[in-house]
Design a protein around this nucleic acid. Structure first.
Lengths: 135, 135
DNA sequence: AATATTTTGATAACAATTACTGATATGTTA
DNA sequence: TAACATATCAGTAATTGTTATCAAAATATT
């Protein structure tokens, strides 16, 4: 369990909303979730705090889907699947990492760079979308 | 060698610009490259044709870096490295694919989806950026 | 040549995100 | 407690990458 942070009520609410979903939401989705219970919440505040969380290493961006940044509070290294039909983003559960330090070293050597992180995204369509449509 | 396509002069020029660079440029970079030799080129035309190429399967988007879409005419499956300092995008050369059909099957089964494509991106800093700055 | 189709430049529209500003809340110090 | 400094915020304006519109120009077709 993480030590209590002295976040403002709104910052805490934004973080909790992000931490309690696996939907990898957009900033606007977080805003829409909280607006009913926090009527004076501003969309700018959501954006501002998502940036704060990124700086604090509490969240990361899992990519830009259809022009919208998608956020994740699950900082464990795991790939994602993006349904190119409904644009949902799904965690790919892994037993152990697809990508290990050897690959970082390989990329470092091949490209003449220092590797700090990586991101794996699969694309396709989810079963919900297959049922709805014929391909 | 690819058969001659009956592309318009501008479409051809845009494609050639993209095909002859490994910089994974933005739409605007392509525009800036061509503007001197094609003074009446419009930025909209570049965007329009980049979309056409995507539909024709001639190019793909390698991701969105700092809010800008980065394009690649190299359709072979290969990972990319993004320097988070200078935002350059570098091809990672591979002998054989990191990700094979077995992994597609694995993701399909674990997530209940159909996998059509994937994208691997490494992040870090390139040697140029290391030399310029102390970290 | 007459007509249809494609492509284009210029511009406006759009949408996601960021910047700004003054107000409010919170923390600190004495 | 009061006085001050700092952090956070709402509301709005500005910015920016991208897309849509539309009439003109180029090209293809008959």
């Amino acid at each position: 369990m993480q030590a209590k942070r002295n976040f403002s009520a709104k910052r805490e609410a934004i973080y909790e909303t992000l931490a309690s979903t696996k939907s990898h939401p957009t900033a606007e989705w977080v805003y829409d979730q909280l607006k009913p219970s926090i009527p004076d919440l501003s969309l700018g505040t959501v954006y501002r705090n998502l940036t704060v969380f990124k700086e604090l290493g509490l969240t990361k961006c899992v990519g830009v889907v259809n022009g919208k940044e998608r956020f994740d509070a699950d900082m464990s290294q795991h790939p994602h699947f993006v349904c190119t039909r409904c644009l949902s983003v799904i965690d790919v559960p892994i037993k152990r990492n697809f990508v290990d330090c050897n690959i970082y070293d390989y990329v470092a050597k091949e490209c003449g760079v220092t590797v700090e992180d990586h991101n794996i995204v699969f694309y396709g369509f989810c079963n919900g979308c297959r049922e709805k449509q014929d391909f």
